[in-house]
Design a protein around this nucleic acid. Structure first.
Lengths: 193, 193, 193, 193
DNA sequence: TATGAATGAGGATTCATTCAT
DNA sequence: AATGAATGAATCCTCATTCAT
């Protein structure tokens, strides 16, 4: 029962942020979207802030799943990097309410320490995953810079797609592939020296 | 008088978003930060939303100035591209309240048509600037893709620097330069064919 | 079963008033203190107000027992008066939760007719007991005044001890004895005339 | 303006406690009784609790005024003691809303440290006033006991009058006078020794 | 032009009560 | 007999907005 209600409420919270925006995602609206009474949020989460924190955790977990699932099937360094890129560009990450929620959490994280911590952990995992994959074919310094660059490119491509409303994921993937072509081409050469 | 007050209030609004967050930047706090009464906001802007819209316009104008100033001095295509990158990475763009305000506006823009319009115009100008500069040395299609890629990289690098709190601008610039090196190297070759 | 549950819940109600105050003694807290579910209160009492009324009745019954027990053993008028005083100053009447509950009921009685009725009955019994005992040695008018005075002294001494948190019962008893000394000294003289 | 509003709101708070009881004296009811909007309470007092604390302070100040005014005119120890008694039995202290508010504060003080402090100060002032006056004619120990006794009698008589709803102030005064007659008769004799 | 007192709608939260199990 | 999940009305409080000065 508890698991069901928490799921319902988290989904409703993300949907409400998507529909109304973070500041206008009220307890009233979220509970109505979940088809339950307003009091239930406090029963299961203790309060609105905790529900929103749980919602951010849920977004992060979903992204982690998308990446981890693809990563598990990858065998070469290049495939691992592509898995990370594709995980970040999975359809679930472009669902409009999800996009709105991500943006809201990035903004809120600046003033909510708990959200900031989640966001920091997420960012570090992405960087660490990328660096690890690049390290297989690049020298440490080059791997670090390539990781930072690809992380930025992933976020930037996602952001532009998210902000523009166009889900031109194919072009984003092509640009990321191109980035990989060059980093791995150069890097492989460098490492061979 | 009006110009002075509007300036004061816009600065106070950005500062308040930086200090308290978008949702907690109240009329009371903004007016106190500006050293004026709370009623004055409605006198000069008509309401809180209009002040916030004016503040976003102000951020955009400042960014435009940073880019345009550098662009005016650039003579080669490469210099133009670097001018755009450096304008976007100007110190003013990493001032913490400004960072917070940018993030807030990106988030809010999803639900405030007026803000969305401003953001769209800004994004198009960036893309158009980049495409124009790339077109001098790349074929149209390649120029478009390079522009999209660099725009994403700029936003992503800015975002990561902004979210991590570290203002490691030099690394960001190095990564962007590296991107340019490669696009222009390839591109020049392609165009020469 | 019913008797056991009612006892548990009344004790828990008084304990909760003692710990949290009247307004903060919620059904949730009371039932948790009793180690039962929240629904049980309505099952056995019909509602929160009825439980609180039963709790006040319980306090009154306990006070009555303290007085009646001592009164049964008293043989002289003076002993009867002392029995009443000592019953009112029994240790059970200074148990902090009981003190808090008494104060709360005095306050609530002004707006809850049922509680007001209980309190009125209690006050009349005290006065009647005192008057009856004084009548054995004082003229009717003097007995009535002595009874009113001693009733006030008892309440006032209890109240001051209760409010100050010090359970200086011995001093209170000494003062009451002193009052009796004088009333009975005078009174006896008057009656003898 | 501020002084006027605070006065209005304190009066309305006491009236509302009198009419509805402490727990039911809501911000809504208090502000309506004051003829102002509900938000104004937070504007002038910061919150409901602060208004209620200010109301208790007001009750205490009024009592202090009643006593101090009479005390200033008293020249003999006996007159001083009567001034204190009469101050505590002034008509203002039997106004029904005031009675209800006093009872409520006594009850609430057990769980609100700020109210507890006010109540403690008040009790100490009463005791100190009485002890000082008794000291002029009684030995220190006897004066202390007489003070405690009279303080209790005052509170008890007030309480019984308050609880019974009868404002039989004359009988209360007569009983207090009688107490004084005896304490001072004995005491004077003792001191003369 | 500028103030800040005042409003009252709307927010999160609490809680007595109900009821299916 | 007993549970505790669920409800929704009522609470305090916040805040953008208005307006007399």
């Amino acid at each position: 029962m508890e698991a069901i209600r928490r799921r319902q409420l988290i989904d409703a919270a993300i949907a409400s942020i998507g529909r109304y925006g973070y500041g206008e995602a009220t307890v009233q609206r979220i509970s109505r979207a979940a088809g339950v009474s307003s009091g239930i949020i406090h029963h299961y989460f203790g309060g609105k802030d905790e529900l929103l924190e749980a919602s951010m955790r849920d977004l992060l977990a979903e992204l982690r799943r998308e990446v981890a699932g693809r990563l598990a099937k990858a065998t070469t360094p290049r495939a691992r990097l592509e898995a990370i890129v594709e995980g970040n560009f999975a359809p679930s990450q472009f669902d409009p309410p999800v996009v709105a929620a991500w943006l809201a959490f990035w903004s809120e994280a600046r003033h909510a320490p708990k959200l900031a911590r989640l966001q920091r952990i997420n960012h570090r995992r992405l960087l660490s995953n990328l660096r690890h994959a690049f390290s297989a074919v690049l020298a440490p310094e080059a791997a670090a810079q390539a990781a930072t660059g690809l992380a930025a490119l992933i976020d930037g491509l996602w952001l532009n797609a998210a902000l523009s409303g166009e889900r031109n994921i194919d072009e984003a993937l092509a640009i990321a592939q191109r980035f990989l072509d060059r980093e791995l081409g150069d890097g492989a050469a460098m490492k061979r020296q």
